[in-house]
């Protein structure tokens, strides 16, 4: 029964990510960049769950979101799975408990993830203007971090909201 509830929460998290990526993100772009909710939620799971769970969630989340854009299918799943695994493993060694530290982690991981994702999945862009890739990565990183901070706080203090209603 407990397992089912936990699985339901993961399924809800993936549905939320899809909702955000399909409906919300295209409507609130900044200079063509959107916040990556799949990364944000995967990182949260990595920060609070075991490595294997984090990796599986990252993979599933990446696969479900990646399928919307056929050219990226597989890359998001691969990168999110291994970033989640890596972060979740590191979390055990370096205690990442405080919220400011989590925000900093989100900022760093988001930057590396976005840069790697663009480099692997859109490698043809590398032959073009690298400055553009870097600026796009920076905007995406900052945007994702800002949205991530709000999301992290909402998840962290969700019990307060639940009690309010």
């Amino acid at each position: 029964m407990v397992n089912k509830i936990v699985n339901f929460e993961y399924a809800f998290a993936i549905i939320f990510v899809l909702f955000f990526q399909i409906i919300v993100a295209p409507r609130i772009t900044i200079a063509g960049a959107t916040a990556d909710m799949a990364l944000i939620i995967s990182l949260w799971i990595a920060l609070v769950k075991q490595p294997r769970t984090a990796m599986l969630f990252g993979f599933a989340c990446g696969a479900f979101v990646g399928i919307i854009s056929p050219a990226d299918f597989g890359w998001a799943a691969l990168l999110l799975a291994f970033f989640s695994l890596g972060l979740s493993t590191l979390k055990g060694k370096f205690v990442i408990e405080s919220m400011p530290l989590r925000f900093l982690t989100l900022l760093i991981v988001s930057f590396i993830y976005t840069l790697l994702f663009l480099s692997f999945s859109r490698f043809d862009m590398l032959s073009g203007d690298f400055g553009f890739i870097l600026s796009h990565t920076l905007i995406t990183t900052l945007y994702s971090t800002a949205v991530g901070i709000v999301t992290f706080l909402l998840i962290q203090y969700r019990y307060i909201f639940r009690n309010m209603f």
């Binding site: 993979f59 990646g66 056929p70 597989g74 890359w75 799943a77 691969l78 799975a81 291994f82």
Partner: peptide, 28 residues
């Protein structure tokens, strides 16, 4: 698990784009 996910991801990436597009369209 790690090996399985890695392999699955590689398979996903290696799928030809037209098949990926068909899968994507069907799922959407």
């Amino acid at each position: 698990w790690i090996a399985g996910i890695f392999l699955l991801s590689i398979i996903f990436i290696a799928i030809p784009l037209d098949i990926k597009t068909s899968i994507s369209t069907a799922v959407i």
